[in-house]
Design a protein around this nucleic acid. Structure first.
Lengths: 129, 129
DNA sequence: TTAATTGCTTGTTAATTGCAAGTAATTAGT
DNA sequence: ACTAATTACTTGCAATTAACAAGCAATTAA
């Protein structure tokens, strides 16, 4: 449990993974624009640590040499259940949640299916694995 | 999702909840001794915030007036699935994990049951709900 | 009635974050 | 070919936060 906290015990780290999973972010620029205002030095630091811990990989974009592509590894993808449960919890208790009733019911009734969907969606869209 | 991070996006907050769930901590002193070295001002701050957010309650110990008892609310207990998934993830990837094979297999095969067990154990031991 | 115990608060120092600016490598436009 | 953008960073500094140490009020035990 200390292990998770070492890696994820930080707001931005969590947001980076969320943006990769749910918004398809895979570039530095996208994180800067999407994450609710990460400072660029913090983003660089967190991407580095996530890479060192084996949750994401970095590679040059073969189609544009000045861009890098960031992708979740299996280890990173295995956080989907935890994250989806936290999403569900937010939906239950956040008075300003944006989650629809339909999504909440799906998370309540067919959670494991939801995990698989998120995983497959990610893998289909990132064109790496 | 931003909602969870506002509340839990902090190492110590998470450890407090973990200690309540798995170590039966319900007193200030116990957190100081158990949490891997929280500073007392930080602990006071986090307990206050957890209370304000409705994840825990504080009450005077009826048997000892200088002590307070901290307990998880339903809202706090509803984090058990998220936390157990993180525990499971740690068990999978932390090379120094202390989780036994038996526990890991139980988490893999009968996760929902594990959630119920943790919940019931907590409620049985805290003598409040 | 003195000494512990418990749950804090208040400084002060050290570490971390956030912001602004700048840089190297690559690509696009003229 | 040359200039201007774009992308992924780094660096320096101010502001915020955390960690450490000490102290304090309320209650209880000796």
């Amino acid at each position: 449990m200390t292990y998770v906290l070492e890696i994820l015990g930080d707001k931005w780290t969590f947001l980076i993974i969320r943006d990769m999973l749910f918004k398809g972010c895979c570039q530095y620029k996208q994180f800067i624009e999407s994450d609710e205002g990460v400072a660029t030095n913090i983003l660089a630091d967190r991407l580095k640590k996530l890479t060192q811990h084996g949750l994401i990989t970095q590679c040059k974009d073969p189609e544009n040499g000045r861009q890098k592509l960031y992708h979740l590894t299996e280890k990173g993808l295995d956080l989907i259940p935890s994250i989806l449960h936290l999403v569900k919890w937010s939906g239950q208790y956040d008075p300003n949640t944006v989650l629809s009733n339909a999504i909440m019911q799906f998370l309540e009734g067919r959670f494991d299916e939801a995990v698989q969907i998120v995983r497959k969606e990610y893998l289909n869209n990132c064109h790496v694995h």
